[in-house]
Nucleic acid binder design. Structure first.
Lengths: 344, 344
DNA sequence: CTGAAAGCGCTTACAG
DNA sequence: CTGAAAGCGCTTACAG
């Protein structure tokens, strides 16, 4: 669509169309309206305006965990296949991007946007939608937003599997240190934990349920409190791997050994936890796949096609390493679950 | 500045200038260079083009290490201050971006480009330069390119400090597992190692010098060979932290304890190495600062100002943790350098 | 209020 | 390898 073509359709000359487009005076109301209608209908774009920039925009709450890089890698793999770059912005820990955010994004003209654990305001959603920029939410943090496509992991199943694993080793006093309640994924993991405990007929002691920031220090502080209890837990399931590493620290401070004195199960399976001491048993979340899936969904939406599914959940799985063992029985030495020597 | 004006100054026609700007063939080398110089000098901008998109472009060889995220975080901090996003591309391990890369970047119109451990072709440099897009090289991998501003770390000093630390503990048979020779930063670390050894009057045994990919498996394989030597080293200094983790694995496989039987010093200080077992003694490289500094340099160049320095080196520092100790003397038990119990 | 004409900045196709 | 000519998409200045 060019100015000349619109002019033809409207039965006027190019300069007249030009005036309408640029909001200049000197066009009859009727003529103006007719031209505006045609433009809306045919979707005029200035020829010399650059087309959508070849980027996929990804918004993170924070870029402070290897967690983010795993997701980025997945997005990048798909983006690369379409000759697209991945544009990153960070919200400094906020759940919702700031005021100017959507203007900045529109200015960049990305092919689409992936919001990681973020919640957009209704206004921000509207901005993207009128600009024709598709949005996908990754690991949705709160209420699924009206019609927004999303990609997540099977968090409830992960919580169930982790807890069952600990129960099967003989644990009964199993604590859970979880992330903040406002994250849906954390809620789901807790519910999975409860479901496993209920199914095994083991009551959940309220003092064994803690909430802490999803970082090492959060896990350490919560675990320190737990281990200080009159009847401390024999096992801890955490909201993510960083918290699990914090539990290690707290255990060491309390002169307890993992897994002999305390079993620990994390969540995520960040690359480095296989090198921690002991190697961490955790629930694997396919972060790179999740990033790739979200990017694919964005590309599908951008192409105008309607995707088969707008809510995708990828599977989680237990990765058994060496941080879990049967609970130490009074007077008996601990039986380690796998063949790893203490102090390896 | 218009195409016609540049053409006048260069004493050529507009179409010729147009070809240079768009990177088309069919212009004599001399003519091209003359036009490029004029464009650089006068700062041409296409009249009908939208202004630069609000992004800083960062090209990585690979996005497969937390190393990358530390740099990204620094770039993002500065970018955020200017309401800019960080656009990421990855070269799948190649040293030089592919053919279409500069066209893609020009299409994105970033405020500037940061190339991490990458080498651009002369053609790619010219493309960016004629488009008026400033370039900064981070952690330059090879020959410093003509006039390209760069940001790095004091790698030579780091190598010196690491080796001195091991020498001061009493080690003499100190191996170095280094990254590929083609990286300048690796060369500098090796030279620092040599300098420390020479200064201490300790000859460098050629069989203790190894080159391996900068990943865990590279470090493991090289260390396995070293430990299999008739006269194995008592200490290993590695090209990066991932290799150091690989050395841990090889030591475990050879039933040797770190640091009692083998001291290890890494390079980078990735966040997680404090949680490895034992916590890794390493040379800290200020990756986030380096990213931020590179971004600042890009912003300065983009503003048209001439920066004070176009070659910036940030300091490295020894971070002592628990992976080094005095060498075990024949018949004597090892003396651990810090108060960490074995098997903590 | 409208549009023919001129002009702008750029690119393309092609003759030399 | 170079540039005159034609053309594209758009806007401006102005005659009617």
């Amino acid at each position: 669509m060019t100015v000349a073509r619109i002019a033809d359709l409207a039965g006027v000359s190019a300069p007249t169309v030009s005036k309408v487009i640029n909001g200049h005076a000197g066009v009859a109301v009727d003529t103006r309206r007719r031209i505006e209608d045609l433009i809306r209908e045919h979707g005029y774009q200035r020829a010399d305006r650059t087309p959508p920039a070849s980027i996929i925009e990804v918004v993170f709450q924070a870029l402070d965990s290897p967690w983010a890089l795993d997701i980025i890698r997945g997005v990048e793999q798909v983006a690369r296949g379409h000759d697209l770059a991945v544009a990153l912005t960070e919200m400094q820990g906020h759940l919702t991007p700031g005021r100017g955010w959507s203007d900045q994004v529109l200015g960049r003209r990305p092919v689409g946007v992936i919001a990681v654990s973020a919640e957009l305001t209704r206004r921000q959603l509207a901005h993207l939608s009128t600009a024709g920029i598709p949005l996908v939410v990754l690991d949705p943090s709160g209420e699924p937003q009206h019609q927004t496509p999303s990609v997540g992991a099977m968090n409830w199943n992960g919580g169930l599997t982790a807890t069952r694993h600990l129960l099967s080793l003989g644990h009964r006093r199993i604590a859970m240190i979880n992330g903040p309640d406002r994250y849906l994924c954390c809620r789901a993991r807790l519910d999975g934990y409860r479901a496993a405990m209920d199914a095994a007929g083991v009551p959940v002691a309220p003092e064994l349920l803690r909430t802490a920031p999803l970082y090492v220090e959060g896990g350490r502080a919560a675990a320190a409190e737990l281990l200080d209890l009159p009847d401390p837990p024999t096992a801890v399931f955490t909201g993510n791997d960083l918290q699990a590493i914090g539990v290690y620290t707290a255990a060491r401070d309390a002169r307890m050994r993992v897994p002999e004195d305390l079993s620990v199960v994390g969540f995520d399976d960040l690359t480095f936890v296989q090198w921690s001491h002991p190697p961490l048993t955790t629930i694997r979340q396919p972060l790179t796949d999740m990033g790739a899936t979200a990017a694919q969904l964005v590309m599908t939406l951008a192409s105008g096609a309607y995707p088969d599914h707008t809510r995708i959940e990828l599977p989680t799985a237990l990765v058994e390493r060496h941080s879990t063992a049967a609970p130490r029985q009074a007077g008996k030495p601990a039986r380690v679950s796998r063949g790893q020597p203490a102090g390896g």
